[in-house]
Design a protein around this nucleic acid. Structure first.
Lengths: 188, 188
DNA sequence: CCGTCATATGTACAATTGTACATATTCGAG
DNA sequence: CTCGAATATGTACAATTGTACATATGACGG
C-alpha cells in the first residue's frame, strides 16, 4: 500500500508546480517577449515566491528551453493527430486547411511564441534541437500523405499563412487557404 | 562658397554616425537578439563612446525602431525593384524565385532579423507600423503582376520558404522553389 | 581671430537583473 | 512518534542595465 501511495502521491509538496511554471512562462513570453521575461515576472504571474524559480530550474535559459520544448511538443502532437486521422488525399488536404485555420498553429499567441522560439533557436543549440525535432516531425507527418516536393511546399505554405493570419490586419479567408492547398496538391 | 561648404559638410563632426550606428545595431541584433542588444554592446561594436548612444537616440526603443525601419525599408525597396523590372507573368514568376533564393530575403541574417522584428511588432505599435508598411508594399508590388488570391498565396509562400531556407539543415533546392511558384501561379 | 552654439564625450547613479544560500517546512520510512 | 532528507522559501548581493548630466570639443558666422 505504501508503494501505491508513493506512486500516486509523489514526495513533492506541489508536484505539478514545475509544469505550471512552464505554462505560465509561455504566457509571460507571449506577453513580454523573451527580452522581457524575467524570473520575477513569471513568479508573480504564477503566484509563487522568487526562490521557487531557482529551485525548479537551473537558470533562466533552462526555463526558456523547457517552455519552448513544451510549445513545440504540443504543436507537433496536434499536427500528427490531425494528419493521422485523415484517410486519403482529400481528407489530408482538408486536415492541412484545418491546421492553418485552427487554434493550434493559427492562433496569434502560438504564432507569436513561434517567432520567439525561432529567434532564440538561431543562437542557442539546445533550443535549436527543439525546432529541428518539430520540423522533422511535421514534415514526416506530411510525407505520409504527399510526395517530398509537395511536402516541402505545403510545409512552407503552412508557415507563411500562419504568420499572415497572426499579423495581417485582415486574416486570409478560409476559402483562399483551401484554394492554396488545393493548387499545391492537385498538380503533383 | 560657404553655402556650398555647408551643404557638403554639415555641422556635425561625424554626420554619418547615426546611420552607421543603425547598421551596427542590426548586426548586434542579428548576433545577440533583441534581448541581448544593449547600448554598450552597440557602442562597443561601432567603436563609439557610450554617451553617443543617448545623444543620437532618444532611448533604446528609438534605436530598435530606427534599425528595424531601415531593415524593412531596404527589403521593400529590393522587393519592388525586383518586380518592377519584370515584364510579363513569366518574368514575374522568375523574379519571385530570385527573391526567395537571393540574399535580400533569403539570407540567414535577414530572416533572423525578421523574426525579431515580428516578435517586437506584436507588442510595440511603432514597430508594428513598420511591418504593416512592409507587408503592404510587397503585396502591392505582387498585385501588379498577379490577381489578389494568387498574391496572398505567393506572399505566404515567400515567407515560409524564406524561413525554411534560413533554419532548415538542407535548404530547399532552387528547382523546388521554382516548381512551387509555378504551381501557385499557373493555375490562377 | 573669436565667441557661440550644436555636437560629442565621460562619469555617475538608481533600478533591475540572475542567482546563491541559509533557513523553514513537509513528507515518509522505521 | 521521530528523524532525515527532499522540497520550498525569503533575503541578500554582485553585476548589468538605461539614462541623466556636467563637461569638452569643434565648426563657422562675424
Amino acid at each position: 500500500m505504501s508503494a501505491a501511495r508513493k506512486a500516486s502521491r509523489p514526495r513533492r509538496h506541489d508536484p505539478e508546480r514545475r509544469d505550471r511554471l512552464i505554462d505560465v512562462a509561455l504566457d509571460v513570453i507571449a506577453e513580454h517577449g523573451v527580452a522581457g521575461t524575467t524570473h520575477r515576472k513569471v513568479a508573480a504571474a504564477a503566484d509563487v515566491p522568487l526562490g521557487s524559480m531557482t529551485y525548479h530550474f537551473a537558470g533562466i535559459e533552462d526555463l526558456l528551453t523547457a517552455a519552448f520544448t513544451k510549445l513545440a511538443t504540443t504543436a507537433a502532437d496536434g499536427f500528427e493527430d490531425a494528419l493521422r486521422t485523415a484517410d486519403g488525399t482529400e481528407a489530408a488536404r482538408e486536415a492541412v486547411v484545418g491546421l492553418i485555420t485552427g487554434e493550434l498553429l493559427g492562433s496569434r499567441r502560438n504564432v507569436l511564441l513561434t517567432y520567439e522560439l525561432y529567434a532564440l533557436a538561431a543562437r542557442n543549440p539546445d533550443v535549436r534541437r527543439v525546432t529541428d525535432a518539430w520540423m522533422a516531425r511535421s514534415r514526416t507527418a506530411l510525407e505520409h500523405h504527399f510526395d517530398p516536393p509537395t511536402t516541402i511546399m505545403l510545409d512552407a505554405l503552412i508557415e507563411g499563412l500562419s504568420i499572415h493570419r497572426a499579423l495581417a490586419l485582415d486574416p486570409t479567408p478560409n476559402a483562399v487557404v483551401r484554394d492554396a492547398v488545393r493548387r499545391i496538391v492537385t498538380s503533383s
